[in-house]
């Protein structure tokens, strides 16, 4: 590891948290990101690359990375694993036809060595849609109860209304903080 990377890692320990947001395409990742940042969510195009936002929350500096979820982009995800403290997995709760696909992608992600030790938050997004599945359904279908390798939690949310977004972030920060910042 080079000098700059070492310095970066050292600094990251100081109340700086890196969150990686992944999920299938059309899950609403960029909408969640922009919602966090209080931006207009009506003009968002499908993501071809990745987006980054730095947010201040409860004295933490959150670096949130949102990487495009199209099938052809998923092989790039691994370039963003390094230094990830928390993984936010976003699900389109109304996309019933692709939940198996979603489950597979998530479980193979959790095998990644560089994500070992990161906290997993699953957002069952699009709860504003009347036809969306509940977080309970998603939890079963994605077989979350079998995840033993990571601390995880699932929350129903809506990027459109903002429902539960902050609760999710609060939880993931708390979980990360309890692991990493115990010295403070």
């Amino acid at each position: 590891m080079g000098l700059l990377t070492i310095l970066k890692k050292m600094k990251q320990k100081e109340k700086e948290v890196r969150l990686l947001m992944l999920g299938l395409d059309n899950a609403g990742k960029t909408t969640i990101l922009k919602k966090f940042n209080g931006e207009d969510i009506n003009t968002i195009s499908p993501t071809l690359g990745f987006n980054i936002k730095t947010l201040e929350h409860r004295g933490f500096k959150l670096n949130v990375w949102d990487v495009g979820g199209q099938r052809s982009l998923r092989s790039y995800w691994r370039n963003y694993f390094e230094c990830t403290d928390g993984l936010i997995w976003v699900v389109d709760s109304a996309d019933r036809m692709r939940l198996q696909d979603c489950k597979q992608e998530l479980h193979s992600l959790l095998l990644e060595e560089r994500l070992a030790g990161s906290t997993l938050l699953v957002f069952a997004n699009k709860q504003d849609l009347p036809g969306s599945l509940s977080s309970e359904d998603i939890r079963k279908t994605l077989d979350l109860d079998n995840i033993k390798s990571h601390h995880w939690r699932i929350l129903p949310c809506s990027a459109v209304t903002g429902e539960n977004l902050l609760d999710g972030v609060d939880w993931i920060i708390d979980d990360i903080a309890s692991r990493i910042f115990t010295m403070d």
């Binding site: 019933r96 036809m97 599945l133 509940s134 977080s135 309970e136 359904d137 129903p156 429902e163």
Partner: peptide, 18 residues
């Protein structure tokens, strides 16, 4: 449309459509 996660949990066949 919102905040009714509890009500929805009665649907337990995840692959049926909306």
């Amino acid at each position: 449309t919102k905040d009714d996660a509890h009500k929805k949990s009665t649907k337990n066949e995840p692959c049926i459509l909306a």
